[in-house]
Design a protein around this nucleic acid. Structure first.
Lengths: 138, 138
DNA sequence: TTGCGTGCAAAGGTTTTGCATGGCA
DNA sequence: TGCCATGCAAAACCTTTGCACGCAA
């Protein structure tokens, strides 16, 4: 689907290798820089940003924009997600800022409904539900 | 519901007055600054940001984060939306940028489901569904 | 009079970019 | 060899903040 030539550089392999070890966890660009700096194999932030963006384009990572001013979050997409099996939704608490991951079949029906009735192809990776979490709703 | 004392300053009135004339349109902070600067009544950007954020807190405006690095978008909330009668959802096309307003009962069930099953109180005014619109989905 | 709102300028944080060098294919 | 990737630094960008002054209540 994406026959772009990608060089297998040391930095790219290190990045993918690391992100694979934390699937379903939100990582920021500076998190990545910090990780490699404290592990004796620093990668420049320019390279981190460029590779992360490239991996998003390839579908290897998801990118989430939670809030303005805050750094973007990246998350490794597990192999079984590629098979179309599970979709991950996100809920963001407006009060405490907590981010909740959700794997819910019922919510997947939203996609079908939006597609059939509103001719809109939902992008679950990009969509964030805002509201109040269990503790904050009182 | 919100007894905060809000001074009726000239800048605040001008801002609300302008935003009211463009309901359902996405406006950025710099758009606002530009508008008033070219109309002979400049408002400092600090004031624009502070007032916009305050108006969001009051429910007068909605704020949308479209993309990292891109400025936040603000949108005037019409009076009938305040009456609580109808809930308005938004779909934002990631490709052409079009914003689609939706009044759909079926989608309102999402709120009930999130509340009952996931203990999450959805805020429809703040939530935007991202994806591809009819023309862009091809 | 009180204290919030404003304006200016500077800072803060995230992300992008120019350019020379390095490394994969 | 050709060209993409990397690193460094600086720039670009949006947004927030400190402080003194102004103005609504």
């Amino acid at each position: 689907m994406d026959p772009r030539a990608n060089y297998r550089t040391k930095q790219r392999e290190m990045l993918i290798g690391y992100l694979k070890t934390v699937p379903g966890v939100h990582i920021t660009a500076s998190d990545v820089c910090e990780y490699f700096r404290t592990h004796g194999a620093p990668i420049s932030q320019a390279t981190v940003y460029r590779q992360l963006e490239k991996l998003v384009g390839e579908g290897v990572l998801n990118k989430y924009i939670i809030d303005a001013g805050s750094p973007a979050c990246f998350e490794y997409v597990s192999a079984d997600s590629h098979s179309g099996g599970e979709v991950c939704f996100h809920c963001k608490c407006e009060k405490c800022g907590k981010l909740i991951h959700m794997h819910c079949e019922e919510l997947e029906e939203i996609q079908a409904h939006l597609s059939a009735e509103h001719h809109f192809k939902l992008d679950p990776m990009r969509t964030v539900f805002y509201g109040l979490c269990e503790e904050c709703r009182i």
